[in-house]
Amino acid sequence: MTELAATFQQEAVAEAYQHRPPYPDEVFDRLEALITDEPRRVLDIGAGEGAIARPLAPRVEHVDAIDFSAPMIEAGRQRPGGDQPNITWQVNPIETAELDGPYALVTAGASIHWMPWEETFARIVPHLTPNAQLVVIEHGPVDMPWWDGVMQAIQRHSRKKNHDPKYNVVEAIRDRGLLELGGTARTAPVTYHQKVTDYIEQFHSTSSLARDLMTPEEAADFDAMVEEAVRPYAKDGVLELKIEAELSWGRPLA
């Protein structure tokens, strides 16, 4: 896991990250509704290139966006909304980061499974407001008729083996005694149109399918397999995706 996590420090991975679909607007409505304390400061852990921090910033007082990857943070600064004055970007692992709370909300988008949980929660809990919530957000396309073909490509080339699709990181954290789970919600699906080339490239933003982990021949084979799988469903080189997000929130415990 440590070796795979280091993949996010590659500049090519940070560059490919822009091709991941954005979070639905409903995610940010729900995040804003979970803030009940003042000040309306947010801590975004494992912020990456700011897919949560940048859209959330106009709705809150301040966002501290923290990630251990310098290329990811730099990408976030350069992307739309990355220069908002109420976002503070910081390159640091969360367990040793400089925190400027108290925070009324902590967000983690597809990132908390990379962190050492005990150290992470011990670090953030003292910096929370009385009713602050930790929200874990996962999102992506659903109901893809081409997915079996894409999975064949992933299974052939992924550097992460023995993946358990039933594993639930929120339940694992709760079972560790670190989260008092308050609720879960799934957003309504939204339509997102994406070029086939960009759809393929977003896979190379993941820890197990980064181009730098493959030979050029392997990367070409992966791209060709995915392109073959999705081609029958594309119109003029564009796929229609249905994007959903799942939010799980609760009170973090040290």
Rank of each mutant, 00 (worst) to 15 (best):
R20T: 10
L31G: 01
R176K: 14
V60C: 02
L247M: 00
A70D: 11
A14M: 00
R251S: 12
T88D: 11
E49D: 14
T215S: 15
G101F: 11
E217A: 14
L181N: 05
I112M: 10
Y233Q: 00
N168L: 02
Q10P: 00
L181S: 02
R156F: 01
V42P: 01
P116H: 00
D67E: 10
F203P: 05
W147A: 12
E218M: 04
E244N: 10
R156A: 13
S158Q: 13
P85T: 08
T191A: 12
V42K: 03
A224W: 03
A47E: 06
R79E: 11
E26S: 12
A172G: 05
T197Y: 00
I243L: 13
V230I: 11
I94K: 06
P165W: 05
N168Q: 04
F68R: 08
K166M: 12
V196T: 13
A5G: 13
P189W: 08
V190S: 03
M225F: 00
M225P: 01
R40Q: 15
G109F: 06
H139L: 06
R156T: 13
A224H: 10
H163C: 01
H163L: 13
P24N: 07
D164T: 00
V230M: 04
Y199P: 07
E32P: 00
H193N: 14
P58T: 02
A153K: 02
F8W: 13
I173R: 04
I243Q: 05
K242R: 15
D83M: 02
Y103K: 10
A6Q: 14
S207D: 10
T206G: 13
H139A: 15
P216Y: 02
E218C: 05
A234E: 04
N92E: 14
I112G: 04
L4M: 12
H127I: 11
R176H: 14
F121Q: 12
K195N: 09
Y103I: 06
G46N: 03
H204A: 07
R211H: 11
V63S: 07
Q90H: 07
D148M: 07
E15M: 09
P126V: 10
E38V: 09
E246L: 12
I243M: 05
D64V: 03
D29R: 13
